[in-house]
């Protein structure tokens, strides 16, 4: 997070402006010059008028790992939605929940937020409290039985964080978190 006056200029928020332009164009439905230009203007207006702290992103996007992240997420979403629906519809069964504390390994806000969002979206767990300074996530698990136990639930959150880091993090950040990039890298490191 940087509060340096120069860094809060719009030139360093072009990702946000791009995203806002895309939202505007999607709302209108067709890609015409008018829509794109209006979207860009509105994006600039919003980012300069309503200042928010810019997010530091030091990583690189790895397409293969990103595909793994999204694919695994979609699979988890479908599987776990069925699980929660079954728990809701199964007669005479009340779920026993638990709140567990998971210590995340990375030190950045962005990965904490992304991991929290993905963990919240996949049914079975909700983020109840997130401590930014210590990097701790408090996760409420709907049913301890269906998640396979408390330690398994904790491991799921850590795996999710590992996938996010592998998809979006730089090598330095990965090493800091104690993870390695791929199977081959792990073999190389072990040798």
């Amino acid at each position: 997070m940087s509060l340096h006056p120069r860094r809060t200029g719009w030139r360093f928020q072009w990702v946000t402006i791009l995203w806002l332009t895309a939202v505007w164009v999607l709302l209108w439905g067709d890609v015409t010059w008018g829509n794109v230009v209006n979207g860009a203007l509105l994006g600039v207006l919003v980012t300069t008028g309503l200042r928010m702290t810019p997010v530091d992103f030091h990583g690189r996007v790895h397409p293969a790992a990103l595909a793994v992240l999204l694919g695994r997420f979609a699979l988890d979403l479908v599987r776990a939605s069925f699980e929660v629906s079954l728990v809701a519809l199964r007669p005479r069964y009340t779920p026993r929940g638990a709140v567990i504390c998971v210590q995340l390994r990375s030190h950045s806000d962005l990965y904490l937020t992304l991991t929290a969002e993905l963990v919240s979206l996949v049914p079975g767990s909700i983020i109840v409290e997130a401590h930014r300074l210590t990097g701790r996530l408090y996760v409420h698990v709907l049913d301890v039985e269906t998640s396979g136990g408390i330690e398994k639930a904790r491991q799921n959150v850590l795996d999710q964080e590992a996938r996010v880091l592998r998809a979006l993090g730089s090598d330095a950040e990965l090493a800091e978190a104690g993870l390695s990039r791929g199977r081959r890298a792990r073999e190389v490191a072990a040798r």
Binding site: S81, A88, T94, P95, G97, P123
Partner: peptide, 29 residues
Amino acid sequence: FFALAAGVGAVRFPDLLSRMHAATKPQVL
């Protein structure tokens, strides 16, 4: 079907946090 599961979960689950699961999870899919 998932919207129905959300409604049933909201009525059946025993406490606030579980009902929150019912409200947000099936809704997404």
